[in-house]
Write a protein that binds this DNA or RNA. Structure first.
Length: 230
DNA sequence: GTCGTTACGGTTGAG
DNA sequence: AACTCAACCGTAACG
């Protein structure tokens, strides 16, 4: 079982880090014990996790099917979704003289946005000013550096996330599908992801390509050597 | 004794 | 580059 390298001790003698999610291993244990029919109060005592926390994790699991914590930090979901951004660029390409406020009106009349999610004129201007970013950069690269900045990134076994601009990819030891509520991850369709990454490797192929492994205070990671897609 | 709920002090990260 | 602030965290305590 993963033991945090730092933290405080709760009334039950368990170690926790204030403000940070419990380790994924502990979250998984809570769910597994519950599935064996162990009562939440006993899980709480056995794993030395407060019953409020056990209750919350199990409730979340029953509602969403995920053992993972929610996305911490960041801002509200962007109104400038990839679809909206590409539409803005398309309008500008077709009519280079078009004004940002005209684009804004087109987004409404063409049905891409409504009054609740329409980007501001300044947002549209910024989009037109900025270069298009490669998809990979939108993914949360902080995952690799922080001591515990892991909670906002979810993983799918078939998805390897490009790391910076070098040739390394990473897969975590726990996997789940990214959800629409996970604001730190660009939602990518399987088709788009395979187009981005090229052919997926099998698990054993990945294992042969492990170049290093690491861990922070909670989780273990494995770094894979894969060719970058072009 | 059990467990749902919430105030609290804390961390995080996109904008 | 530093800052903001709304999202989330687990604990402790209440009922």
């Amino acid at each position: 079982m993963a033991v945090p390298l730092f933290g405080e001790v709760n009334q039950l003698g368990g170690v926790y880090v204030n403000g940070r999610p419990l380790p994924n291993e502990v979250r998984l244990q809570i769910v597994e014990l519950a599935q064996l029919g162990i009562r939440p109060c006993q899980i709480s005592r056995q794993l030395r996790v407060s019953h409020g926390c056990v209750s919350k994790i199990l409730t979340r699991y029953y509602e969403t099917g995920s053992i993972f914590p929610g996305a911490i930090g960041g801002s509200k979901p962007r109104v400038t979704t990839p679809e909206v951004v590409s539409y803005i660029r398309k309008l500008k390409k077709n009519d280079p003289a078009i004004f940002a406020w005209e684009i804004r009106e087109r987004l409404l009349t063409d049905g891409l946005c409504d009054k609740h999610n329409i980007p501001s004129v300044s947002s549209i201007s910024r989009i037109l000013r900025n270069k298009p970013r490669p998809l990979a950069v939108c993914l949360n690269r902080h995952f690799f550096y922080g001591t515990s900045k892991t909670s906002t990134l979810l993983h799918h076994p078939l998805c390897l996330y490009p790391y910076s601009s070098d040739t390394h990819y990473l897969a975590s030891n726990y996997s789940t599908l990214p959800t629409k509520t996970d604001r730190s991850v660009e939602i990518v369709s399987p088709h788009a992801m395979s187009a981005l990454l090229g052919p997926q490797l099998s698990r054993s192929e990945h294992e042969r390509n492990i170049i290093s492994s690491g861990q922070d205070s909670y989780n273990k990671y494995m770094y894979f050597n894969c060719p970058l897609p072009v």
